[in-house]
C-alpha cells in the first residue's frame, strides 16, 4: 500500500503531497523535509529505493522534480517505479508536455488526476487513455 506520494522540486518545495495515512500537519512537514533530504543528495547511480523509517521510498527524478512514493517494505519496488512513470506520462498527456509551472498553477488538477489513478493507496486504473478521458468528462461538468 502507498502511504504517501510527494512531488518536490530540487529546492524542496512541495508541489503535491497526498497522504493515505493520517498524519499531523507538523509530522507531514517533517516527512516532506526528510524525504527531500534523502532523495535530493543521492547519487544518480544508486538505486531508486531508499529505506525511510519502517517503510521504503521509491523515487524517480524527472528534470528538477522528484516523484516519491512511500510504500510498505514488502511491496514490489519495480512495479512502483513503473507506476511513477505511468503517472508522469499521464500528466504529460494531460498538460501536453508538462513542466513544473503547469503543476504549480494547476495543482488542484494534479490532485484530481491522482485521484483517478490511485485511491486509498492502491492502484485504481492502469490505462492512460481511460484516465485522460475520464478527466475530460469531469472537466466538462465544471
Amino acid at each position: 500500500m502507498i502511504r504517501f506520494i510527494l512531488l518536490q522540486n530540487r529546492q524542496g518545495k512541495t508541489r503535491l503531497a497526498k497522504y493515505y495515512v493520517p498524519l499531523e500537519d507538523s509530522e507531514k512537514h517533517k516527512v516532506e523535509y526528510e524525504v527531500h533530504r534523502l532523495v535530493v543528495n543521492r547519487d544518480p547511480k544508486y538505486t531508486n529505493f531508499v529505506e525511510f523509517r519502517t517503510h521504503k521510498v521509491i523515487y524517480r527524478r524527472y528534470a528538477g522534480l522528484f516523484f516519491s512514493l512511500c510504500v510498505d517494505i514488502t511491496d514490489n519496488e519495480l512495479a512502483y517505479l513503473e507506476c511513477i512513470h505511468l503517472f508522469v506520462e499521464i500528466l504529460d498527456h494531460f498538460f501536453s508536455n508538462v513542466c513544473e509551472l503547469d503543476l504549480v498553477f494547476n495543482f488542484h488538477k494534479v490532485y484530481l488526476i491522482l485521484d483517478e489513478f490511485i485511491l486509498a493507496g492502491e492502484l485504481q486504473e492502469t490505462s492512460k487513455k481511460a484516465i485522460i478521458e475520464r478527466m475530460g468528462e469531469l472537466e466538462k461538468l465544471e
Partner: peptide
C-alpha cells in the same frame, strides 16, 4: 458538481480521519 468537487478535494487535503 463543481462545488462538491472542490469541497471533497479540500476535505481530503485539509482534514484527516482523526
Amino acid at each position: 458538481f463543481p462545488e462538491k468537487r472542490i469541497g471533497y478535494l479540500g476535505l481530503m487535503l485539509l482534514v484527516d480521519e482523526r
